[in-house]
């Protein structure tokens, strides 16, 4: 046992834990340690998501500056903002996060939908996004959800993602009936697919889904 005169305490350590003064120079054996020697390298904070957000914001700010100085009559910066935001979401949520597949599919469909709507609205709003691109994107998302249902037993999070995906599928139809979209058949395909998925859940959903629902919704 070593003694630190300055702190008036005894310690097994060779360096005083309170004032960091060297008390002895002989290395203690492992069996005398109070705590293990740590591997601190593995404990570094995750920086990639923050770097991505910082880089994204920097690019957007730089582009706003350049756009306003050089070409203020044509605001191309909105294309950049949408694309950079999509890239950051894709990196942080789709690639780096530990979210399950269903959540990543919904995240991709939702963010790509917003990006397509932004690009269309900024380029004269020819309605190609809401007439064709978004409905087909949603159908693609539904196909991926269906494949994940067929290939592995669905857990709760899978159900939630599917429900969100189904809810999103009625967006094109809503846009058509509100007069924003002008072509019906892509929207109808997305809605029909969503209805079929609802029927599929009604017939094949595991009994535990209903038990889980009562727990998940308790107040």
């Amino acid at each position: 046992m070593n003694h630190c005169e300055q702190c008036t305490i005894n310690t097994k350590h060779n360096i005083c834990p309170l004032c960091s003064q060297q008390l002895a120079s002989i290395d203690s054996k492992m069996e005398n340690r109070t705590y293990p020697a740590y591997d601190r390298q593995s404990l570094g904070k995750r920086k990639a998501p923050r770097i991505a957000v910082f880089a994204g914001l920097s690019i957007i700010l730089a582009c706003i500056f350049i756009n306003l100085i050089i070409m203020p009559h044509f605001l191309w910066v909105f294309y950049v903002m949408g694309s950079v935001a999509y890239a950051v979401i894709s990196l942080n949520h789709t690639i780096l996060s530990k979210s399950h597949l269903g959540s990543k599919i919904v995240g991709q469909v939702a963010s790509l939908t917003l990006l397509l709507l932004l690009i269309d609205s900024q380029s004269g709003f020819l309605r190609w996004s809401i007439n064709y691109a978004v409905p087909f994107l949603i159908v693609a998302g539904l196909v991926m959800v269906t494949l994940s249902i067929l290939t592995k037993r669905l857990k709760w999070k899978g159900y939630i993602s599917s429900i969100l995906m189904i809810a999103l599928s009625f967006l094109p139809a809503a846009l058509y009936f509100s007069g924003h979209a002008t072509v019906i058949w892509p929207s109808a395909v997305a809605s029909l697919y969503a209805f079929m998925l609802i029927v599929f859940f009604g017939v094949f959903a595991h009994q535990t889904l209903w038990t889980q629902l009562s727990r998940r919704l308790h107040i």
Partner: peptide
């Protein structure tokens, strides 16, 4: 008497 240990 006080004995001090730490995880360093």
């Amino acid at each position: 008497e006080i004995e001090i240990n730490s995880n360093e």
